[in-house]
Design a protein around this nucleic acid. Structure first.
Ligand code: FES
Ligand code: FES
Lengths: 142, 142
DNA sequence: ATAATTAAGGACAAAAATATCTTTAATTAT
DNA sequence: ATAATTAAAGATATTTTTGTCCTTAATTAT
């Protein structure tokens, strides 16, 4: 569905949402270990999220990444957007230049319903909600 | 959704289904022009489909690609499979090693419904049905 | 102030996806 | 038989995605 970049962005954000606070910041080392992603690559991704103020960071001892309320309340579509993948959800499944009901490909009618549901999922699920759904005891096999 | 490879494979197959017969074969030149895809790249893709007997080919004058009943009746999931992308529909949206209800990511429950519908679309729509839905008069903007 | 720690930034590298080009083989029309 | 036509096959090239490494800048603890 998504690129690695977006996958890591989502995983990292959810992890940060679950385990960080302004008092307890998380280092890139911790985060990339926890979500099983390449450290430097993940650092680049978090840089982008930080620039877009979706997460925050502070260098130095006890520094790291953390997240605040506005983003916790935001839908995960923010993260997908920030990674430039929201357009992926608008594309025609057969690669038509424009996916539209006016000029539909032969799969359009059925596919658009699915796309609509997908968008709904990503716009309705907030980051904090997802983080809460992450069971503490059960570590996911990323 | 799909890679370029798969997009071209689907477009080419649908085009061949609509415009070819055993008597009227289509050259790679015609096909790639019609579906607006890079010619040599498309040739490679059709080679794969030919090897897997999903379409057929014959070299020489009046040669080209054509399609026969078994494939016309087959679902487009065949083509997706042939391109090695059916597993894409089984993957976890967050990149968990295994997407399963037993060990679900926080998006699993909602996402699996969408995946199920997608699979259904690709397994229920036959190639000939799609070809018939292609309007003759309206040329799609690939 | 100094040293330690951590993110930011830039350059580079490897792998995968996408695309092109050239030669060969098969088939057909003459 | 010969020439023309078309797909098959293999080598190569380009672009994008994914990933690494090294230096710099910011912050904090001492
Ligand atoms: S036009 Fe193809 S999915 Fe909408
Ligand atoms: S486990 Fe993530 S989508 Fe199924």
């Amino acid at each position: 569905m998504f690129s690695k970049k977006t996958e890591y962005a989502l995983r990292a954000t959810i992890y940060i949402a679950k385990h960080s606070s302004e008092e307890k910041k998380l280092s890139i080392v911790d985060i990339s270990k926890a979500i099983n992603s390449p450290q430097s690559f993940t650092a680049k991704i978090l840089q982008v999220l930080t620039k877009k103020k979706l997460i925050h960071s502070l260098p130095g001892p006890n520094g790291g990444f953390y997240i605040t309320e506005p983003t916790l309340q935001a839908p995960i579509s923010c993260i997908i957007d920030a990674m430039g993948e929201n357009e992926a959800l608008d594309k025609c499944v057969l690669g038509l230049k424009k996916c539209s009901t006016a000029n539909p490909c032969p799969l359009h009618e059925q596919y658009k319903k699915v796309k609509f549901q997908l968008k709904e999922i990503f716009e309705e699920k907030s980051i904090s909600k997802l983080a809460k759904e992450l069971k503490n005891n059960k570590s996911l096999q990323y």
